[in-house]
Design a protein around this nucleic acid. Sequence first.
DNA 1: ATGCGTGCAAAACCTTTGCACGTCA
DNA 2: TGACGTGCAAAGGTTTTGCACGCAT
Lengths: 144, 144
Amino acid sequence: MDFNKVLELLKQKGYKITKQRRIILEALYNSIKPISIEEWLQVTKVQNPNINLSTIYRNISVLEDVGLLNKIRPKDGNIIYSLNLQEEHSHFLICKKCGKAESIECCLSEEFKKIIDDKEFDLIEHNLELYGYCKDCCDKKNHK
Amino acid sequence: MDFNKVLELLKQKGYKITKQRRIILEALYNSIKPISIEEWLQVTKVQNPNINLSTIYRNISVLEDVGLLNKIRPKDGNIIYSLNLQEEHSHFLICKKCGKAESIECCLSEEFKKIIDDKEFDLIEHNLELYGYCKDCCDKKNHK
DNA sequence: ATGCGTGCAAAACCTTTGCACGTCA
DNA sequence: TGACGTGCAAAGGTTTTGCACGCAT
């Protein structure tokens, strides 16, 4: 996704594009990996040393609201952030009774990468299928 | 896993079974769902109102050391905890080049449940396959 | 012009730690 | 008995918030 598209999405939600906001967004946009708040602050300070931590926190809320923020929580250590720029790919909820497959939009790539972090394995794709009972079959059969 | 087995595992690592520790562990053991620190404290206080928050935090470290603790981090909200009592089931890292399948021991059930939380779907099983390049093929082909 | 966004400082919140005392093995 | 565990209180770290000012629209 183009950076201007990112700004566009913010504007569509009624957010103004201030100098600080632009710098903060660019910092994350240009980062090749998810970063912590502190790293994020350091990078923004390169462009404008006066930018405040609280401003970054407030822009985190904005990005969450727009749905562009990926938050990753390593088991140990602080939260790291990245922009969610990719097209979403689907997984399915498959009913064991009626076979209905419902698409869900979630991408677990980051979680997977974390899990195999120590495996020296270059993760490219994943396939995930979730099996259970859909609402209709739950109601009928009292599976819950 | 039996509760006594849990205590046994702690003893094996050289931890003592104090009254407080037992209550704290039982609280989590008996919980039907992952709970936050605050909920955990409330439940332990039913058995012994003097038990301190810091004691729970210290026992979290113990459980982590023993490998019995599941930490779940909802995107929004505090960490919730559960005991990791189930036998682990495997997923595979499958190499797209040499086809080698390496078993990894991780269970994403909780994450999946979180994801479909709002879907009214009774999740029973899941299947996960991770595809990429194993270390050997990475080295040979310079995929990284 | 007006209202949203920002910097600053303080507050709120969560987690860790030092210390003295208690208790398990 | 000795070492580990606990309660309490204080410290440490992170995130949020109130306020006055500034800037984008």
